[in-house]
Amino acid sequence: MSDLLLDISGLSAISLREGGNPILRDVSLSLKKGEVRGLVGESGAGKSTIAKALLGILPRTVKVTSGTMRFEGRDLLTMAPRDLSAIMGSDIALIPQDPQTALNPGRRIEAQLTDGLRLRRGMNARDAHARALQLLSEVHIRDPERVLKAYPHELSGGMRQRVMIAAAFSLEPKLVVADEPTTALDVTVQKQILRLIRGMQEAHGTAVIFVTHDLGVVAKICDSVTLLYGGKVIEAGPTADVLADPRHVYTKALIAAGPRYDRPDAGLEPVPQWVFDQLHQEIRTGAKEILHG
């Protein structure tokens, strides 16, 4: 049996909102069990669209036009809704971008953290409580009893994101999709959360799709990376190879631009215009992406 967990192949999607505008163009990427893959690209590159497609939560205004998304060999795109919902949240979990809006302000943490355990695993309240305590200490929350009783507004952003991570790992998923899980947090907290996700991933042997704008983050925690632009894969491969030996001018320019290429103030030099001109040319002509290894 192969250790391939996820295999996205030739995935294309259009936006019905913007008159059939392509959002994803022939995207292929794969993920081994326990692998962490960074999904990098600037705003509008299609990162979240891929993440949503994986979770089966694409908005109705987005339409997949071709391609397959095989998870453990079964195509998520053609799967019966019942089978799909058995996988979602259970085998494939989400760490959301903003822990502020991802927790219900009207329910205590315990209720929200144990929903999955009770609904998916059929646990009773007492077992779910014990498991929740265990999960919270796993994400280094010091006072788990107090946090379980708290409402979301009583916790800091970092604490809330720890709770979301605990919730994501609570059902022992095989794949966790993290869509920019640190952008809503303070810089000091960001590092801790990154380390925590990596730590949880290693401890549970979970594969992670890590969506980010930040090549520095990719360098730190991703085994492999897929770089997108305009819905098209530009370059992909093991992180070390791509960063050490970028082949595409866009990748080179991004690395030169510094860790946060999307923030001109933090970057060293912006991506020159001719690079974008070349990217647009390639997208029009349908040039192949560069794959390492």
């Binding site: 949240g89 979990a93 809006t101 991802a102 929200q112 999955g116 609904l119």
Partner: peptide, 20 residues
């Protein structure tokens, strides 16, 4: 809201999503 989406992923029925 995002929390509804996450609750849906956790397997909550639509009736429960609305009521709870």
């Amino acid at each position: 809201q995002d929390y509804i989406l996450l609750a849906r992923l956790k397997g909550m029925s639509r009736l429960r999503l609305v009521l709870q």
